[in-house]
Nucleic acid binder design. Structure first.
Lengths: 189, 189
DNA sequence: GTCTATAAAGCGATAGAC
DNA sequence: GTCTATCGCTTTATAGAC
């Protein structure tokens, strides 16, 4: 049954892009109203806590997407398949390097202190889920742990560099190398 | 001969830390005056263009430091020595992961568009200088290019992840692996 | 070169009509 | 649930005394 009025989840996704583009401090309510088409009345109806409330819901929304699409499959599915799927999902989600990671961006400024728990949790669970999958492929625990951390870190770095150079190909290249490194069978870590 | 009054370079270094902590949008003039001790009168005396002027000088200051301490040695010195020195300088500069890269942070938000040229130039010259050094160690051009990009990207990612997890050890671990990967002699890229 | 006072604009947030 | 009007505050930036 179609709805006339907006739903919170629609609003969250729309606002997320404004935060992604300007950062937490840089995203003003007037930009949000202009870009999303929602007036301040609607915004404060959905998010009584204002800007911080919006960001909290956006982080939860992002976390839920990654949890469902990436972390959970890494934990339970066939390890190699889940890792390959992770790489494809990451490429799609970050639009081949044209979209940044909001969680990573929040981490780099004073915004981190405001949202320290969800930010740390997102990366911790990503690394942990990937580590588990790598362990199931036969790697020992320290190797799996190190490789997982390196892969997640490299994805973040690739997003930074792709945007700094305004060259999405940097991201695509990095993803291919990350995948090869993850599945490598030689003795090094 | 000692000076009583402040010099522009002193002011730049002090302001840089405020931008580093809060990002471009998040750093307010009142925070800058509070942290640095310079009043608005002094600030606008040194930087008539205001906040954007300050950020421009800060980026130039950072660029100059890297140019002198890291890029130039990579271009002319003994390759292996210069690379090892780069890793040490990077560890010191970023305070073992407790200090972020302002250029990378600027790249992630709308601030990038304002400073696109210095941001891209910083990373382009870093990668290019490192690529040259790797080439001189015997790697062919594509290998050197790929490894240089991967290393710079990994440094940025390590800074993001270390700050997200509030765990500087992530950065230290990553630096060791990056150095090993850079100097590796096996056939893979 | 540094200060204080102040202007003009934009900010996040609220109130109340509909 | 959405709108407009508005509050109080902070922002960047300027002016002018010292």
């Amino acid at each position: 049954m179609p709805r006339i009025v907006a739903e919170k989840s629609d609003v969250v996704a729309a606002i997320a892009e404004v935060f992604r583009e300007h950062g937490y401090e840089g995203a003003s309510l007037s930009q949000i109203t202009a870009t999303t088409g929602f007036g301040k009345g609607s915004l404060y109806h959905f998010f009584p806590g204002g800007k911080e409330d919006m960001a909290t819901h956006i982080l939860a929304h992002i976390d839920h997407w990654f949890e469902t699409e990436i972390f959970a499959p890494l934990r339970t599915g066939d390890a190699a398949t889940a890792i390959a799927r992770m790489m494809r999902s990451v490429e799609t989600y970050f639009q081949s390097g044209n979209r940044i990671c909001l969680v990573g961006a929040f981490a780099l400024t004073g915004t981190r202190d405001r949202f320290a728990t969800p930010i740390a949790g997102y990366f911790r669970r990503w690394i942990s889920a990937l580590e588990g999958a790598l362990h199931r492929t036969g790697l020992n625990q320290p190797q799996a742990s190190q490789r997982a951390e390196t892969a997640v870190l490299a994805i973040q770095g690739a997003l930074v560099l792709a945007r700094a150079l305004n060259d999405a190909a940097v991201f695509t290249r990095a993803l291919h190398q990350i995948e090869a490194d993850l599945l490598r069978r030689d003795p090094q870590s």
